[in-house]
Amino acid sequence: MTKLLSVRLVAILVGLGFTVAVLWGFLVGAYNAATEEAAGHVPYEHPKELSWSFDGPFGKWDKAQLQRGLKVYDEVCSACHSLKFVAFRDLEQIGYSEAMVKAYAAAKTVPGIDPNTGEASTRPGLPTDYFPSPYPNNVAAAAANNNAIPPDLSLMTKARGDGTNYVASLLMGYQEPSAELLEEHPEAAPGPGLYHNPYFPNLNLAMAPPLTSTGQVTYDDGTEATVEQMSKDVAAFLTWTAEPTLVKRKQTGWPVLIFLLFATVLAYMSKKQIWSAVKPKK
């Protein structure tokens, strides 16, 4: 009994120790908060709420949009950004035929080996190749871009919160910083080689506005290529590159959930039936 009492006594002392230690920090923090002015955050905007064909539990790809987005990537983004987890063969999933994919791949140049000398060279792409990177390595990428390495875009919409909306908002969000913002946060003024964008967390982005004028890309389906249209199309395309299985996932989900609902109702009825023998009845 005295032994158990001593266990509890030790516990009480240890508990009070932790409490004093942590509350000490609380008091110091409270004192600092009262005497020092907290550094405010630069305000950035959350992505716009846009609507997408693949939204919601029944969402589907808009393949025409994905193809337009591919064209925007091809003609604009691919100058600096790689797409290394996407293979040309994957393009069959967004509505291209096998022959079209083959021709598309052949028009690209990928790194290869000279079959006679074994030296590094290039060759036309095959459907099994992955989208080539614009730079041979990170050092080259950094050197060509003022030390800001353009990130790979394959997973971009999954690697940012609310990614599809974020990419679209960012691309159409370039603007001059407002006078009020600069007055309140002088540090938010873009430095040399940086561009103001309210959707970028620190407001200053090393990427120059990539989509600047209507008609920058000529769409094959005749859609007018406004900056907004191109931004949305490429954001949709990058949603597909980030998760090509998104639509299949949702479509597989429904039968699974409906079956489970059915099975759960059966399990409930069976459980009720079994327990009716011993449950007190009202």
Partner: peptide
């Protein structure tokens, strides 16, 4: 816990059906 003694002929059949259905679903 002796349900067998309290369920009727009809009750047993209903119970069996439900149990078999639930186990089959699983």
């Amino acid at each position: 816990a002796t349900p067998e003694t309290t369920t009727t002929e009809d009750g047993i059949r209903r119970r069996d059906f439900l149990d078999i259905a639930a186990v089959s679903a699983a």
